[in-house]
Structures are given as C-alpha cells and as structure tokens.
Computed example of a mutant assay.
Amino acid sequence: MEYLDIKLLGREYRVGCKTEEKDALQTAVNYLDEKMRDLADKTNSAGERLAVMTALNITHEFLQHQRSGGFDIPALKRRIEGINSRLDSALAEQEKL
C-alpha cells in the first residue's frame, strides 16, 4: 500500500492506494476536482453540500451510461472509418502536389 497526496478544491488529502492504481486514482481525482469546481461555480455551493451534489451528478452520469449499454461500438467504428477515408483522400491529394 502506498499513499498519494491529492488536492480537491485546493484542500489536500492523503489517500492510500495500490502502486499499480496510482495513475488511475490521480485521473479520478482530476475528474472529481473538475466536476466539483464546475458545480461550485454554477451553484455557489460548498462543503458537504457540494460533495453530495457532485457525487449525485457523477452517479447519475454513470447510471445513464450503464443503462444505455455503454458505447455504440458499431457507430464508433463507422465514424472512425469515415475519418480514415477522409484522411486517405487528403493524403492522396497531397501526393499529387
């Protein structure tokens, strides 16, 4: 077990984590801090109220994503294929120059 010093809304905390999870935890901290700052700006909330509201919003986002079945992989593949096609066309035009 390792410790990671994190900062949320300017306040420092020390949390325990496994070494291999350190980067993922830092990513989560950054996401949470961004969400908390965004909500604080919009609602003028602070402290426990802000923490609960942020947790509720993140949970709602998670459940919506979970209910929708996650990502639409076929749509993402079509979009990537379209981007690749446009890149191929652009590169072909560049080769002609």
Score class of each variant (00 low, 15 high):
residue 2 E to T: 13
residue 2 E to V: 14
residue 3 Y to S: 13
residue 5 D to K: 06
residue 6 I to S: 01
residue 6 I to T: 00
residue 7 K to M: 09
residue 7 K to T: 13
residue 8 L to G: 03
residue 8 L to V: 04
residue 9 L to W: 01
residue 10 G to D: 06
residue 11 R to F: 05
residue 11 R to P: 03
residue 12 E to C: 03
residue 14 R to Y: 03
residue 14 R to G: 03
residue 15 V to N: 00
residue 15 V to Q: 06
residue 15 V to H: 03
residue 16 G to N: 14
residue 16 G to I: 05
residue 22 K to T: 12
residue 22 K to Q: 07
residue 23 D to Y: 03
residue 23 D to K: 14
residue 24 A to R: 05
residue 24 A to L: 04
residue 25 L to D: 01
residue 26 Q to D: 06
residue 27 T to E: 10
residue 27 T to F: 09
residue 27 T to V: 08
residue 27 T to M: 05
residue 27 T to P: 00
residue 28 A to V: 07
residue 28 A to L: 11
residue 28 A to S: 10
residue 30 N to A: 15
residue 30 N to E: 14
residue 31 Y to K: 15
residue 31 Y to H: 13
residue 31 Y to E: 15
residue 31 Y to N: 12
residue 32 L to W: 00
residue 32 L to C: 06
residue 34 E to M: 09
residue 34 E to A: 13
residue 35 K to D: 10
residue 36 M to D: 01
residue 36 M to L: 00
residue 36 M to C: 03
residue 37 R to F: 00
residue 37 R to G: 14
residue 38 D to H: 15
residue 39 L to S: 02
residue 40 A to H: 05
residue 40 A to C: 11
residue 40 A to P: 05
residue 41 D to S: 12
residue 42 K to W: 00
residue 42 K to Q: 11
residue 44 N to Y: 13
residue 45 S to V: 00
residue 46 A to F: 13
residue 47 G to D: 04
residue 50 L to R: 05
residue 50 L to S: 02
residue 50 L to W: 01
residue 51 A to K: 07
residue 51 A to C: 06
residue 52 V to D: 06
residue 52 V to F: 04
residue 53 M to S: 04
residue 54 T to A: 07
residue 55 A to N: 02
residue 55 A to V: 04
residue 56 L to V: 08
residue 57 N to A: 15
residue 57 N to Q: 13
residue 57 N to C: 08
residue 58 I to S: 08
residue 59 T to H: 06
residue 59 T to F: 03
residue 60 H to W: 09
residue 61 E to I: 06
residue 64 Q to K: 08
residue 64 Q to T: 11
residue 65 H to T: 14
residue 66 Q to S: 08
residue 66 Q to F: 14
residue 66 Q to W: 12
residue 66 Q to D: 11
residue 67 R to W: 08
residue 67 R to H: 14
residue 69 G to E: 02
residue 70 G to D: 04
residue 70 G to Y: 09
residue 71 F to A: 11
residue 72 D to F: 04
residue 74 P to V: 02
residue 74 P to H: 01
residue 74 P to Y: 00
residue 76 L to C: 09
residue 76 L to N: 14
residue 77 K to S: 13
residue 78 R to S: 12
residue 78 R to W: 04
residue 78 R to E: 15
residue 79 R to Y: 10
residue 80 I to M: 12
residue 80 I to A: 10
residue 80 I to L: 15
residue 81 E to G: 07
residue 81 E to S: 08
residue 81 E to C: 03
residue 81 E to P: 02
residue 82 G to N: 10
residue 82 G to Y: 00
residue 82 G to M: 02
residue 83 I to H: 08
residue 84 N to C: 08
residue 84 N to K: 12
residue 86 R to P: 03
residue 86 R to Q: 14
residue 86 R to F: 05
residue 86 R to S: 14
residue 87 L to C: 00
residue 87 L to V: 13
residue 87 L to K: 00
residue 88 D to Q: 08
residue 88 D to M: 06
residue 89 S to V: 09
residue 89 S to L: 07
residue 89 S to H: 12
residue 90 A to S: 08
residue 90 A to N: 07
residue 91 L to M: 11
residue 91 L to A: 10
residue 91 L to D: 03
residue 93 E to H: 10
residue 93 E to G: 14
residue 93 E to R: 11
residue 93 E to A: 14
residue 93 E to P: 01
residue 94 Q to H: 07
residue 94 Q to N: 09
residue 94 Q to L: 12
residue 94 Q to D: 10
residue 94 Q to M: 11
residue 94 Q to C: 09
residue 95 E to N: 09
residue 95 E to H: 04
residue 96 K to Y: 10
residue 96 K to V: 12
residue 96 K to A: 15
residue 97 L to D: 11
residue 97 L to Y: 13
residue 97 L to K: 15
